[in-house]
Write a protein that binds this DNA or RNA. Sequence first.
DNA 1: CCGCCCCCTGACACAATCCTGACGCTTCCC
DNA 2: GGGAAGCGTCAGGATTGTGTCAGGGGGCGG
Lengths: 232, 232
Amino acid sequence: MSELAARVLVVEDEQQMLRFLRTALTAQGYEVREAVTAAESIVEATTHNPELILLDLGLPDGDGIDLTRRFREWTRVPIIVISARGREDDKVAALDAGADDYLTKPFSVNELLARMRVALRHAAQAGTDTSSTVIEVGELRVDQVRREVAVGGREVRLTPTEYRLLVLMAANAGKVLTHRQILKAVWGPPYMGETHYLRVFMAQLRRKIEADPARPRLLVTEPGVGYRMRDV
Amino acid sequence: MSELAARVLVVEDEQQMLRFLRTALTAQGYEVREAVTAAESIVEATTHNPELILLDLGLPDGDGIDLTRRFREWTRVPIIVISARGREDDKVAALDAGADDYLTKPFSVNELLARMRVALRHAAQAGTDTSSTVIEVGELRVDQVRREVAVGGREVRLTPTEYRLLVLMAANAGKVLTHRQILKAVWGPPYMGETHYLRVFMAQLRRKIEADPARPRLLVTEPGVGYRMRDV
DNA sequence: CCGCCCCCTGACACAATCCTGACGCTTCCC
DNA sequence: GGGAAGCGTCAGGATTGTGTCAGGGGGCGG
């Protein structure tokens, strides 16, 4: 399992709790690194790239919720907040700030370990997706940094909406996207019913990137469901 | 926000709690679907493809942890467990079975909503997909992400209704589904009396996926009751 | 102020799907 | 043996979904 020997950063100022966590996690085979202050935790995180962060809200040099937000500016590493404060507002604020879970002291070790496994499971799942800047599907090539689209080397000029639609389809090559999913992603939630937009823009895209727009090989229709970019 | 109008499946047998959740979630703009039993929840999930599942552990017809495990055989949709049981073992078992979070009754609505946002955030990160995987029954193979059906490696093209019917049967492989259950799930509650639809579409499905449609080995008839997909 | 480009919208043709009725078969019960 | 009920099969017509075209309106830059 990939959770074995995962690097865990524990951010905690109370010595007692820190010792407790260290022994518990080490016993499970985790590689534990420690930070006592918010500042220190950022240094640790940047230098040692942990796979999971356990974060106590009650730090001496700053608000843990702010710290969470700061982490989220540059990393998606799972953050499990541990706090003596059981107030509803704290939980909601921490979770909305980007924390993945919230445990109130006192907590059971086994529950913590189980929730850590969940967090690491999520990370492993999310890690597989390639959010690379260049997407290639057959003859099609989309460079998201340069915002350039080419088919068989030939440059293709796309309008903003066409481009967003194409990126969405290419990024999910092989998968079927429903009308609702596409409309929500490209036009926004309020437009989830406007399936006609889709037909018009799919036709335009096909005219620009397909060799024979009447017989699409890349942007195929899944009748009654949605569309799919064929990846083979 | 992309989590607006997300489809949520609530699996809960207590009427009071069900009503409570329904009003709270609807007020937040969620599209709520409901199931009262474990069997019903699988039917609902396969046919309506929710983006999140709220699952009460205390169901009349089965263990919620087993149900979680069953969901995880074919879908990665976020599951938040709600339970009156606050025992550590229950939490660990549910989380390790594949649940993404665990709330103990009584819980605060705001915390539930915050944890739902976390779960939906994770799902959105993992991809635009609804995170379903593959169902395999003998020679039959259903890939819900690609929406592809194959029998012994050979691709099969299905219409929307045929596909929904097949997914329903495959997800419940081994179990007998009554005419009413199938009709309700595939065509909707108003059509529970139209058993003729079933005969027509079962015949069409058999013609497409059975080696000898006259002697079905996958989609078998349970006379006077309903149909069943044989899982061996 | 003008022109261009893009997005939205409506009308229409075509294709595919779903519904519906008729009919023959089997099974079970009387 | 006969009838009824349930099931499987077939084919045509209604309905829905999809592709296509063209034009108006609004925003943006010159």
